[in-house]
Amino acid sequence: MALPAACVAALYLSIPGEVALARTAGWSENYAPAMPVCLSVYALSAGAIATYRRKMQLPGQITALVGSLAALILAMSAQSISHLIEQSYMETSALLVIAVSCVPPLTIAHLVHMAETPSQVVTAREEKMKLHEVIDYLMVELTFSLHSESTILLSRAERTAMQYDHLKDWASELTEEVEEACQEIEESLSEKPSPKALTREAITAAAENLKQGGKKATVENMCRALGVSQATYYRYGGGKALTA
């Protein structure tokens, strides 16, 4: 509360001197009271802009600071000159009238200059730089992600190729085993006597083999040993060969 109160008191005390100086410079009673408003608003605006740009590290800090100091100097000069004239220590002059008359247009010009937005241009540049940084970051992340995914897919492809080669080798081995089994079956089948090859000597040899193995030379055992049916056995004279 102390700071606002002091500011209000200082502005209130500066009003009479600035109004008197405006009257001395030739402004009428209706326009003279605007002089303290002009100087006060000018000082507050310049100080606020200078503080903001300093905090945000924006350009134009020096210009705003100079404006704030100029407003304070004008306010101090207005008070001093007004009191000097009022106490008859000095008289008005053409130079003083010109200087006081130039205060409003100079104030407006400097406020417009500070209101011009170089900070927005800089901010846009900063935003553009940040956008480029974000794009570069996303490009790096995308490249890394694509590289990682490509590495994973390549590793999976290599494992799939190895499994395919393993299955291919296993299928080749299985094919070879099947071929060998078929060949063995064919050889075993070719070793069995066909009905046309069923002779008396074959029947006699089968009977001898059964006797040596401790088995009886029955028709069933003989057909099993010769690999023929009983009809074929009898057709080719098996019974007669055993009884002969």
Rank of each mutant, 00 (worst) to 15 (best):
V112L: 14
S194I: 12
S188Y: 11
H132D: 01
S172A: 02
A124R: 14
E149G: 07
Q120T: 07
P195Q: 04
A205F: 12
I98D: 12
Y89H: 01
E158F: 04
L138V: 00
S172W: 09
A109W: 14
Y164Q: 07
S172F: 13
V100A: 07
R159T: 14
A99S: 12
E179T: 11
C102L: 14
A206D: 05
S119A: 06
A171P: 00
A115S: 10
P105S: 08
L167S: 12
I108T: 08
K128N: 06
F144Q: 15
L153V: 02
R200C: 05
I203D: 03
W170A: 15
T117R: 15
T204D: 13
I98F: 11
C102E: 15
E91W: 06
S150C: 01
Y164E: 03
S145V: 07
A171V: 08
E127S: 06
Y89S: 01
E186W: 13
E133R: 02
R200F: 10
K168F: 06
S190L: 10
E116G: 14
S119F: 08
K168G: 05
L95D: 01
T123E: 03
I108G: 02
T151D: 09
P105V: 12
R125S: 09
L95A: 10
V100E: 00
K211P: 04
D169E: 14
P193K: 03
E187K: 04
M162F: 10
A94P: 00
K192D: 15
A109M: 15
A94K: 09
E191H: 01
V140N: 08
L146D: 03
A206L: 08
V97T: 05
E133N: 04
S145E: 09
V140T: 05
T151A: 01
V134C: 10
T117I: 14
R125A: 11
P104S: 10
E177R: 06
E91Q: 03
S119Q: 02
Y89P: 03
K192I: 15
H110N: 09
R125N: 06
S188M: 03
S194T: 13
T107F: 12
A171L: 09
A99T: 13
K168T: 08
H147T: 07
V112A: 12
K196E: 13
K168Q: 03
T123A: 08
L153H: 06
E177N: 00
Y137K: 11
T117Y: 14
A207M: 01
V112T: 10
I185N: 01
S155Y: 03
V134H: 15
M90Q: 03
A205V: 14
E208K: 06
V121A: 06
Y164H: 05
M129A: 07
M162W: 09
Q87P: 00
K192A: 11
S150I: 08
K196H: 15
D169L: 10
E116Y: 13
K128D: 07
S194Y: 11
M139E: 04
Q120V: 09
D165Y: 13
S190M: 07
T151H: 00
Q120R: 09
E180M: 12
E126T: 01
R159D: 11
R200E: 14
T92Q: 01
Y137G: 09
P118I: 05
P118A: 09
L106I: 02
T92F: 01
M114H: 01
H166Q: 06
A99W: 00
R156K: 05
S188V: 05
R159K: 14
P195I: 07
S155L: 04
E180T: 13
T107G: 10
E91V: 10
E184Y: 06
M114V: 01
